[in-house]
Structure formats: structure tokens, C-alpha cells
Simulated scan of single mutants.
Amino acid sequence: MNFKKTLVGLTAFAVFSGAQAEETLSVAATAVPHAEILEFIQPALKENGVDLQVKVFTDYVQPNIQVDQKRMDANFFQHQPYLDEFNDGKGTNLVTVTGVHIEPFGAYSQKVDSLDALEEGATVAIPNDPTNGGRALLLLQDAGLIKLKDESKITATPRDIAENPKNLDFKELEAATLPRILNQVDLALINTNYALEAGLNPAEDALVIEGANSPYVNILVARPDNKDSEAMQKLAEALTSEDVRAFIEEKYEGAVVPAF
């Protein structure tokens, strides 16, 4: 793909903003699409006085720990419900800097080609963290497979299922492992970043997927002591530029949706 026009636009943003003494900003991210988006804006931020250093993580815990312990300046991998749950559970005080994009959550299978084809007692794998597990169950509820006791509970677990007509057997597993065990279960609910890393195309491969109005916007996260720093605000501005919008729309073709 040719991103010449968007790169020119980001360079113009950098020149307009004016070159300043370089400041290093370290950001923890999952590989796809977060690190890819960050790497796209690195050249423009460099011209604008920010040396953006991206470190890729494969889990959803360490990026927050690293920022809280001041080993990294920020992270870019999660949505607000996950951050709220993490702060409550770990006693941290990480904060949102800006929202960037939505990754519509989907259900995938290598054994059936529709949800209707799921048999009695089919095995369904969902993420084992509270917010993504609840998100998976809400999606299955919207698809008519189950009904929850509280139909809007975003941290629901299989214990909160009130109706399960097909007696689906739920397995709660680490989110990053779900693409790897897809051939071992009948259905897996997979975060889009991990689906993309595994070569899945959410727009084509998902049997059911969230709409673009999903409330799970992926956010840039920092600490209260650095969220308003000049370098952080430059990063936030770059992440929500029209050039990044064009990059997301062209590269991910609907699997990732700008939220600004």
C-alpha cells in the first residue's frame, strides 16, 4: 500500500509545530495494530522533537505495570472498561490521554461456518480477564446464543448466564492464546489485535462481530504526573490526526475503525 500522501501530511504537521529539543517518550503496545500505528507516526514526531520508542508486549498486564512503575511513559493497547477494572483490581491510578480507535470484537471458528451450526454442548473459548470476557458474553447475547442475568453487565462471567439453550461449554483462557487454540474449540471470541496477528480478517472471517458503534475505544494511557506533558500531548495530537485516520482506514479495511 502507498502511504506517501499521509506521510507528507504528518511531515507538514511536524514542520508546522516547529522543531524543538528532542525528548524521549517510551510507549508499551501490542503489535497489531497499536505498534504499527505508533511506528507510522514516529518520523513526524521525531521532526517535532519527540523520540518515540515503541516496545511490543504480548499480554494485557505488563504494559500497565510498566507504566505504573515508571519504566515506560505510556501504553496503547486497551479500552476504558479494561483500564477501569485494572485500576480497581491493582490499586493503580493510570489515566486516559485520548481515544484513538475501535477494534470490533469477533467470534471465530474452524469447525462451523455459522453460529446456528453450533451443536449442543459446543466448546466456546472466551478471554479470562473480566472486561473482555464480559464483552464476549455480551456479543453472544446479542447474537441470541445466551442470555445474561444482567443483560448489560460488562464484567459478566459464565456464572452470570441465565439462559444457555445449547448448553455451551465455556472455557476462560488468556486472550493472547485464543488464536492458537482455535482448532481445539468450536468457537473462540478473539480480540481484534490478536486476530490480526494470527492472520485472521475480522471483516471476512468472524461469524459475528461488533458494530462500529462499540463503546470499547482503544486509548492512549499514561500517569497523572505525565499525561499533560508536552511530549505526551504531541503524541496524542499525532494519533488523532487525519493522516492516522487515513492510515487506519486504508491499512485495516474496517477491521480497525477510527474513533475520533
Rank of each mutant, 00 (worst) to 15 (best):
G9A: 10
P43K: 06
F13E: 15
P258K: 11
V100C: 09
P104C: 01
L25I: 06
E210S: 01
A74L: 03
R159C: 08
A28D: 14
A212R: 09
V244S: 07
G134N: 00
L38D: 00
I248V: 13
L7D: 04
I154K: 15
Q42I: 00
M1G: 15
E237H: 14
E250H: 11
H101K: 08
L187C: 06
D160I: 02
L173D: 09
I154Q: 15
I65F: 13
V8W: 08
L200F: 06
L196K: 01
Q80T: 15
L148Q: 10
Y60E: 02
L139G: 00
I154F: 14
S109D: 07
A188Y: 03
F57E: 06
L118W: 02
V208Q: 08
Y194V: 02
T30R: 13
E174Q: 14
K70Y: 11
T6S: 15
N64G: 15
V27H: 05
K234M: 05
A156G: 03
L196T: 03
I209P: 04
Q42Y: 05
A198K: 06
P202M: 05
D205Q: 01
F260M: 01
I126R: 03
Q233M: 12
A175W: 08
T92H: 15
D84H: 00
D160L: 02
S152H: 12
K153S: 13
K153C: 10
I161G: 08
K153Q: 14
T177D: 15
E39D: 14
F105K: 05
A44V: 06
E103T: 12
V112K: 13
G133F: 00
Q110L: 15
D116L: 14
V244P: 02
F3T: 13
M1I: 14
L10W: 02
D225S: 13
M232C: 07
T98L: 09
F40P: 04
N128S: 15
G106Q: 07
Q53M: 11
V15A: 14
E120R: 10
D116Y: 10
G134S: 00
N193L: 08
L178P: 00
G18F: 06
I102H: 00
K149N: 10
T157P: 02
E253S: 12
P224S: 10
L145V: 03
E163S: 11
V97G: 06
T98H: 11
N193D: 13
V217T: 11
Y216W: 12
L10G: 07
A198L: 08
S17W: 11
V256I: 15
K227P: 09
K55L: 12
Y252H: 04
L115V: 00
A212M: 10
E174Y: 11
F247A: 01
Y216M: 06
A136Y: 02
K227Q: 14
G254V: 06
H79W: 11
A175Y: 03
Q69C: 07
E249K: 14
T155L: 11
K149G: 11
T11I: 12
L94C: 07
P202I: 04
A238F: 01
G133D: 08
K5F: 09
H101V: 10
G99T: 04
F16P: 08
E172P: 05
I248F: 04
G144L: 07
A188K: 04
N183K: 12
A19F: 14
A195E: 02
A143S: 05
I126L: 05
F13W: 13
G121L: 10
N128R: 12
V100W: 02
I181Q: 06
